[in-house]
Nucleic acid binder design. Structure first.
Lengths: 334, 334
DNA sequence: GTGAAAGCGCTAACAG
DNA sequence: CTGTTAGCGCTTTCAC
């Protein structure tokens, strides 16, 4: 194993000089810097992570807590996780993957062991039991999601309320007056995950303003569940001419079912979704949709958390403005 | 921050005693052990990860390299990753999430910095450029996948050749003589990812033995791509009565398209898939399928790698036997 | 059964 | 601009 001392000897300088060449925390003459750098990659030196962490109280690791649950739409999670990992590397950090299982206990463990310099939490509940601890520790933390009380932490999320409003506006402008909302799985609401409720609130409020009737039904992503939900909706509100789908897994089944009913999209019925752009674009009918910007969320969370680690940046709540892309699944009310 | 010394003082013993209580590496009288343990959770002590890693040359971290590519079926990856993280925790390890971007360079970095005790690699190519380095370092490593030369590393994977064979057998037994294989995206084959080619080999060999004609077409997961592929297949081999789908994203589009053609599944045409059971069970027609055992793969990889870290366990290639579940998408040739 | 003490490899004062 | 040195918190001989 190559150590700092090896490099120092090889380059004919002291250990601290090598350290400072690495950190850039004091000025080094060009000649010695070059000599040291040559030695470094000649010997293939990499600083020992443990030693560095011990001496500097900085691990250069960001902990990412992902939900263990399987009722959430997985691709979005994965996209965020990958975006977090990639962005973190670009800032010199590695990412520790924690499954949310033991929420508070995990937070305590990471804090106590100084394993990570900061935490990013996904799948945040309205009254998340990890938050009190997180605040207590004072470690930099960013939530991807929005809890009831966002004080003393940072939050990033899509502005789901605005997203909901945007959907209603788009459909109302096309003349629709009866809209059905195919929501997330019931468990998502029971858990009081903020985003689903915020979407609904946005939908409802703008619906009221624009005089649009809304029918909301939670729905699992399986074909059978969507079929059942669709049947109920059509029975309760036969005049429904448009659907807003929040559970991405439900979009394809819904389109397939409508096709079977010989109801053409968008001629007979409009469908729009809140989902990643890629999903929307590749559906059997390219979907008019409000994009869930998974990559941006991950990137932003990392940048925010890195800023905090470095002493810049403060607690803030950032809600990304939703963007609506009109594709081929929405049209005027028949 | 609570340190070992704090605990020692609180318990009225020496630092080494506390350390030994923690590690169990020498016998401690019940009375002092209890005293120490009480102090530990009274003070809320957690050992400092960096210090421990430095002193013991063990980080208790397993690095997981996941592919960055987006042409692979994401849910499987995510399921494996979560399974890895969960199993690792059960064995006292944390998981570092590395995106595969810079393959060999990342392996070198992790090795050089002693950040991880072992590595688990996903998305292994036939001639993976991370392997030479990995062998050189001598660190415990397990691949989820199978390279051309699996010497001096361990590998776990589904036996995709057997899976392919199983599909052909099932369909042949039902009387089908012309089978179309909807494969993974073309990029997957170009990259020479082992599993796709192994599946194909298994399919072809058993097809030859059983006198079944096979037509294989790579295919992206989008609806449009599946439509194009289906059209080509039906033109080239109008007598096709069964499909084997390996690209899971293609299953739903395929079923939808067949429905549009008024070809009933399984009465007019049989469809089967190689995909996670959950996907198969929730499709619009519950799919007869060979399961990709994502969780088992992750769990097994961790157990194997932990065994190696602890000096037990040796290099081996384990191919999990495929299991076929008959659901409602396959039937006798019409 | 328990303690004392020597590092592990690095960072960051403190001296020039 | 560079070197010397004292730890960071823990593990692990060595000694009793």
């Amino acid at each position: 194993m190559v150590t700092l001392a090896d490099v120092a000897q090889h380059a004919g300088v002291s250990a601290s000089t090598v350290s400072y060449v690495l950190s850039g925390k004091r000025s080094i003459s060009t000649s010695t810097r070059e000599r040291v750098e040559r030695s470094i990659d000649q010997l293939g030196y990499h600083p020992n992570a443990g030693a560095r962490a011990l001496a500097s109280s900085k691990s250069n690791i960001i902990a990412l807590m992902v939900p263990l649950r399987t009722d959430m739409y997985v691709p979005v999670m994965m996209e965020i996780a990958i975006s977090v990992a990639t962005t973190a590397r670009a800032h010199g950090y590695d990412v520790l993957l924690l499954t949310g299982e033991e929420g508070p206990a995990t937070v305590r463990r990471i804090e106590g062991s100084a394993l990570a310099d900061a935490m990013i939490l996904m799948d945040v509940e309205l009254h998340d039991d990890r938050l009190p601890l997180l605040r207590e520790t004072g470690r930099p933390a960013v939530l991807i999601g929005l809890p009831a009380d966002p004080s003393r932490v940072s939050c990033v999320d899509l502005d789901f309320a605005a997203a909901g409003a945007l959907c209603v506006e788009h459909l109302a402008r096309l003349g629709h007056r009866d809209i059905a909302v195919i929501g997330e799985a019931p468990a998502v609401y029971e858990r009081h995950t903020g985003f689903a409720e915020r979407t609904l609130a946005g939908l409802r409020e703008r619906g009221r303003e624009l005089g649009v009737r809304l029918l909301h039904r939670p729905c699992e992503g399986s074909y059978a569940a969507v079929a059942a939900t669709l049947a109920r909706v059509q029975e309760e509100r036969p005049g429904t001419t448009a659907f807003v789908v929040q559970n991405e897994a439900a979009t394809d089944p819904l389109l397939a079912l409508l096709r079977q009913q010989r109801r053409a999209v968008p001629e007979d019925v409009s469908v729009m979704a809140i989902c990643p752009d890629q999903v929307a674009a590749h559906a059997s009918v390219p979907l008019t949709a409000v994009a869930v910007p998974a990559q941006e969320l991950g990137r932003y969370a990392v940048e925010q958390v890195v800023a905090k680690i470095e002493g810049r940046g403060s607690d803030e709540v950032v809600l990304l403005a939703p963007e609506l892309t009109v594709r081929e699944s929405t049209g005027p009310r028949p």
